[in-house]
Nucleic acid binder design. Structure first.
Length: 432
DNA sequence: TCTGGGGTCCTAGGACCC
DNA sequence: TCTGGGGTCCTAGGACCC
């Protein structure tokens, strides 16, 4: 729960700065190719399918985010638009440099996405603007990436402020939005969809009850909004009022799932080809998982036909599969993924996309001294919870049967272990 | 005839984000 | 011909338990 400051006149107002890289992918390309500066640049997705980033000059030409490139390629290339395929390794490295620079200004930092971070600006009253300008200048000096900074008492308002900093050149890339009247004036000019957390559907549903601007949302009755739209939207209402509900999340939690998926350059008709694709995704997913020292016992395979081909029947299916024990072993997981694929495969369709999702990720700790057995009858999620709890309690050198890095004889040893009959970790049988 | 109720777990799907 | 990939959180409803 967020601390409630609204009832206390002497409460210190919190202050968040959202630092957001301008046109991040395009800016990264420009760092290494300065001749791209001042020119319209677009970055394309996999298979050069659609537009995923644009420089300001490209935006000015009317190139939309997500636009299928094949529909726009010719006219835009005539206008001198420069096209790049995406290079995520480069963007990841540049992101790390930007974050490292920001950390020097404040250790209280939440890396929100590849190109955004929230910083605590608490205690900078009166010096906020100069401080923000210093941050901005140093990030540019050290990384070559231009950023915009929005400052406000809540994360949601900081997002709004950041947007204003970007849209308004006079701001010089820094917008402070601490004043209530200024907040209202700005919110009145925006669309609901400009608010963080409100997209098309919610916007439409809000419109049905007469709420059409962010200012109206801010003024709406919070309990009513909660009843009608749930806690998420209620939080947005409070955040828009300047009441902070979303705290700075400085310690990133372990990821809970990961996906490896691709759209194919051409459609796939044969099961054999699809098995090859799914094998590739499974092993790629396992690599990611091992790199983060995680393991899973729960995965999903999904396949899909081309949803844009309206003349064909659309078919999308997924199959989840449970492993008896958490693992990050490529062979084991690939085998499971392929059997899941067999369950969803439909001959006669042209498939355009497939993927493997790994769920309920747990830390994969090596078997060393202590062993616990968890019976197969225990559900995957309970098993994961139990394993997590064990890891926390006994530290790194505890066990998890069948997890990554487990000694090869684990299956044999498992046979020798007595089963336990509880999903409560305290009652798990200690066997080693 | 009358057919509990509260809690938790699980899963699928919706909605949103970058 | 050609339309991305990778995440999170919440909710609803059924199963199950006592």
């Amino acid at each position: 729960m967020g601390r409630d400051r609204s009832c206390c006149a002497c409460a210190v107002t919190e202050c968040f700065a959202l630092v957001d890289c301008n046109n991040f992918y395009a800016s990264c390309e420009r760092v290494f190719q300065p001749n791209l500066r001042g020119r319209p640049v677009v970055i394309l997705s996999n298979n050069d399918g659609c537009v995923i980033a644009r420089s300001n000059e490209a935006k000015a030409l009317g190139i939309e985010m997500g636009a299928p490139w094949h529909q726009h390629k010719q006219p835009f290339e005539k206008q001198g638009v420069i096209v790049r395929s995406s290079n995520y390794t480069l963007y990841g490295n540049m992101s790390a440099r930007v974050m490292k620079t920001l950390r020097q200004f404040s250790p209280n930092l939440e890396v929100y996405s590849i190109d955004e971070a929230f910083l605590s600006f608490d205690g900078f009253d009166g010096r906020m603007e100069s401080h923000a300008r210093e941050v901005r200048a140093r990030v540019y000096q050290w990384t070559g990436i231009p950023v915009s900074i929005g400052i406000a008492p809540t994360k949601t308002l900081a997002k709004i402020a950041n947007r204003a900093a970007k849209k308004n050149p006079a701001s010089g890339g820094v917008q402070i939005l601490m004043d209530s009247a200024e907040q209202e004036a700005l919110l009145d000019q925006l669309k609901l969809e400009d608010v963080w957390g409100i997209a098309k559907r919610l916007s439409r549903r809000l419109g049905e009850i007469g709420i059409t601007t962010p200012l109206q949302l801010r003024q709406a009755d919070a309990p009513f909004i909660r009843e009608r739209f749930g806690v998420v939207v209620e939080r947005i209402v409070l955040e828009l009022r300047g009441q902070s509900c979303l705290e700075l999340d400085e310690v990133p939690s372990n990821r809970k799932s990961l996906v490896s998926s691709r759209s194919f350059g051409r459609s796939i008709h044969s099961l054999q080809e699809m098995r090859e694709a799914v094998s590739t995704y499974a092993s790629r997913a396992c690599e990611k998982m091992r790199r983060q020292n995680l393991a899973t016992a729960n995965l999903i395979v999904f396949i899909e036909t081309n949803p844009f081909r309206t003349q064909d029947q659309h078919y999308r299916a997924s199959q989840s599969i449970q492993l008896p024990l958490a693992s990050s072993d490529t062979g084991r997981i690939t085998t499971a993924a392929l059997s899941a694929l067999d369950a969803v495969w439909k001959p006669g369709y042209s498939f355009k996309k497939a993927g493997v999702m790994l769920l309920d990720l747990v830390s994969a700790t090596h078997v060393t001294s202590t062993l616990f057995d968890v019976p197969d009858s225990v559900s995957s999620q309970s098993r994961m919870k139990a394993m997590d709890a064990l890891n926390r309690r006994f530290g790194r050198d505890t066990v998890i049967l069948g997890s990554s890095g487990v000694k090869p004889k684990w299956s044999l040893r498992r046979e020798m272990l007595s089963p336990c009959y509880s999903t409560d970790w305290r009652e798990l049988v200690r066997v080693g």
